[in-house]
Design a protein around this nucleic acid. Structure first.
Length: 489
RNA sequence: CGGGACGUAGCGCAGUCCGGUAGCGCACCUGAAUGGGGUUCAGGGGGUCGCGGGUUCAAAUCCCGCCGUCCCGACCA
């Protein structure tokens, strides 16, 4: 660990604070390869929890996992014009194999639409083969110019769902459904509130008809795109000749969707919930929910506390067996590390609950329970500890979402705002601004040049203001939509 | 690719201006005491000073070239 005891406050420099937390909480590390990231066991444990929760949601909505190749023939990408144009600048290309120059270069997948549709073309013949609902967990490579741990690395882990449907409306419904599932996950599991909505053309996925996105607000008031869901229309179906015979016997192109979320969400978790003591992990995603720290002086006390600690672990497991899942509890039995040092370490790593157990407690058949989010300490009886732990974890999960939502609302502007005021705001503390947009790409670009802010989404109905804005933020002409403007990662 | 800063032990840095035996803090190892919010003491290991060339009796230090990292732009989940 670095020598500084305290983390840099994020008020001074949020980026430096973020890097410190990610490195010191042992979520990730820099790799010998520029722009690539090593995800350490602590960070990967969170990713595994995310994967499991999402995978269950995908399965519950009829999706199945599959796996497609890492390498994509260059010609595949060129079949969809917008797609290749969108991704060309950030492709990693393999030109040699087996010591020889390849006849056709292979692209390391930046996303798998092309290779998957080439297979869909073989697999789909009849309307009875539809809908085809697949998902894959994999890594992808995008050669970014500037990288940042979790948020933008050359290689990252993600999940990409790909579906094919008989009609436009079914595909649209699927794209919307998956957006809803992402929202449920991000709010319910990550305690990270999001605004959902439609992306404008400038931020649309290369080759999509429509792109929907989820935007979360980080603690520096910048937006983080937390996931996307695309209605691809028939663009890829036409490029890869994915056709089916309909009930009426006609040959038709399928309508498809794709959607994904990545390890970027771990970065979002840090920037949503972290504080000056390090990481705070919402209980549902914490690899360890409760850590027991024994306190002792003598060797005799030490063995007593460890014994009591082990009994506690067992009784907590038994308690949880009456409920779904099993409590993820760790007894920190390390000798030679003082309790105080252990407290700081587990707080830095964001473990939701700490249970302190010492001779004085044991004599009174109690312990001290400490919540990571509020650092609130309170004594708890060992007889009812299971209930207290469950209760605290549930409350903490709820409180973290409430806290994040309140912070977001406090930094959102819904009142009409002049362009000058808007520029000042974006130049200063930033935030989410809900304001009108005339629908022209020119205004969007001009605002980006002036302020670095962009339209994150055209928010879905429930996020729109009670009084719809009437004029465009930039040009003042009649607004065709309400837009969420913000600076973004 | 443009503008700026930096590269010395695992991490963070001093030393560079003004050339003369490679330093500090943390981490690590050993031992003892300590233990309810980041323990203390003692001892110890660890370095081609980013790489290459030049100047010099002598280079971490001066000169030239290259490489790399970070920050600010262009690119982006």
């Amino acid at each position: 660990m670095a020598d500084e005891k305290k983390l840099t406050t994020r008020a001074e420099d949020f980026s430096a604070w973020y890097n410190e937390v990610v490195l010191r909480a042992e979520l990730a590390d820099y790799s010998p390869v520029r722009g690539c990231m090593v995800i350490r066991p602590n960070g990967y444990g969170i990713w595994e929890r995310m994967q499991r929760a999402l995978d269950d949601m995908f399965k519950a909505t009829g999706h199945q996992n599959a796996y497609f190749p890492l390498f994509i023939p260059e010609s595949f990408l060129q079949k969809e014009k917008d797609h290749v144009e969108g991704f060309a600048p950030q492709l990693a290309v393999v030109t040699h194999g087996g010591g020889k120059k390849l006849d056709e270069p292979l692209i390391v997948r930046p996303t798998s639409e092309t290779i998957i549709y080439s297979m869909f073309a073989k697999w789909i013949q009849s309307h009875r083969d539809l809908p085809m609902l697949v998902n894959q967990w994999c890594n992808v490579v995008r050669w970014e110019m500037r990288t940042r741990l979790f948020l933008r690395t050359l290689e990252f882990l993600w999940q990409e769902g790909h579906t094919a449907h008989a009609t436009h409306d079914e595909a649209e419904e699927e794209a919307r459904q998956m957006l809803g599932i992402y929202r449920d996950f991000q709010e319910g599991w990550m305690a990270m509130p999001v605004v959902t909505g439609l992306k404008t053309d400038s931020e649309k996925f290369a080759g999509a008809l429509r792109t929907y996105g989820l935007e979360a607000m980080m603690q520096d008031n910048k937006a983080l795109q937390a996931g996307t869901s695309h209605n691809l229309g028939q663009n890829f179906a036409k490029a890869f000749d994915v056709k089916f015979q309909s009930e009426s016997g006609a040959s038709e192109y399928v309508w498809s969707t794709s959607w994904g979320v990545s390890t970027r969400m771990i970065g979002g978790l840090v920037m949503t919930h972290g504080d000056d003591n390090g990481m705070r992990i919402p209980p549902l995603l914490a690899p360890i929910e409760l850590v027991i720290v024994p306190i002792y002086k003598t060797e005799e006390e030490r063995s007593q506390m460890l014994e009591a600690g082990k009994r506690l672990v067992t009784s907590l497991h038994e308690w949880e067996r009456r409920r779904p899942g099993q409590l993820r509890v760790h007894l920190d039995a390390r000798d030679g590390v003082k309790p105080g040092a252990k407290y700081y370490e587990w707080e830095l790593k964001g473990i939701p609950l700490r249970l302190e157990l010492g001779p004085r407690d044991l004599a009174k058949n109690q312990c001290v329970l400490v919540r990571r989010d509020s650092r609130e300490k309170k004594p708890a009886s060992l007889d009812t500890i299971g209930e207290d732990v469950s209760e605290a974890l549930i409350r903490m999960q709820e409180d973290m979402l409430i806290e994040a939502r309140e912070r977001r609302e406090a930094n959102s502007v819904r009142e009409p705002i002049s362009y000058d005021k808007f520029r000042q705001l974006m130049d200063g503390k930033g935030g989410f601004v809900y304001a009108g947009w005339c629908g022209s790409a020119e205004c969007e670009t001009a605002v980006k040049e002036d302020t670095k802010a962009t339209i994150r989404v055209l928010p879905d109905e429930e996020f729109r203001s009670a009084d719809a804005p009437t004029h465009c933020l930039k040009c003042g002409k009649t607004a065709s939509a309400e837009a969420l403007w913000a600076k973004a990662y």
